[in-house]
Amino acid sequence: MKKIFKDTCIIAALMILSVFSISIIWSGITDEIGLVLKLFGLAFIISVANFLFDEYITLSIAVSYIVKYFVITGIVMLFGFIVGWFYPGNFWMAFIYVGVVIVLAYLIDSIKVKKDIAYINARITGRD
């Protein structure tokens, strides 16, 4: 099920990119296409930040997600101000958007870590 969901997300992203790439040729960058490109750009920046964070910083799972929450919210706010999503009256919404994603990611990650540890330890026990 997990693989199907993952493949669905990848295929959907590829479909959006390919359909919009072709649309750019006919109609240029419309507002919708611009929004999608900006979202992909933001996702890329967050992925790079997340990679660097995981590579260079070792913290507990909860603390790392709290730090990530503030870092990513900062990135989203900055990006949002640059591309015109946010203005001084509504920038606080970034905390809600990022919060929802971070809470979901934290829950999935903590469950996955526990499952992986249980799997590895079971294999070690079986090996001995």
């Binding site: 995981d54 590579e55 992986d116």
Partner: peptide, 15 residues
Amino acid sequence: LVVSRKYLKDIKRIF
């Protein structure tokens, strides 16, 4: 040894 969560899946892959 301290294990980074990022590499846990690589350890799992070995097993």
